[in-house]
């Protein structure tokens, strides 16, 4: 298990949109390193052919406990009134949510 570099920690923090002060970054680097040393061991385990359990109820074999194919009928329910929807919105302009300018095309 490779220990985390500072650069890696910074990259992950950027991906997660988490601002970390430089002392936090340092602490994070060493703490994550320790945790990964401990838990990263699973990377080395051979699990060839073992199905992944994506849900805590057995989804891979239909049994009496499995409720698969849960779908919703296409029937509209009333929307939240705008004022209720945006009640906790930090910054509004009328009924629109305001954010700092998005660089045009910044979206993937």
């Amino acid at each position: 298990m490779p220990t985390l570099t500072r650069k890696e920690v910074e990259e992950i923090a950027l991906l997660a949109r988490l601002h970390l002060e430089s002392d936090e970054l340092e602490r994070m680097q060493s703490e994550l390193g320790v945790i990964l040393d401990h838990f990263g061991t699973i990377a080395a385990i051979d699990a060839t052919g073992i199905p992944a359990m994506t849900h805590a109820v057995a989804m891979d074999h239909a049994g009496p406990f499995v409720s698969l194919g849960v779908l919703r009928p296409d029937e509209p329910q009333p929307s939240l009134p705008v004022d209720e929807a945006l009640r906790g919105t930090p910054k509004r302009d009328g009924d629109l949510i305001v954010v700092p300018a998005i660089i045009p095309g910044a979206k993937e």
Partner: peptide, 18 residues
């Protein structure tokens, strides 16, 4: 910080998120 909850205002979006 966009629709509800805490927001720390910043001039650009990336900084605001972080």
């Amino acid at each position: 910080g966009i629709r509800y909850g805490l927001r720390v205002e910043a001039p650009d979006l990336l900084t605001q998120y972080s």
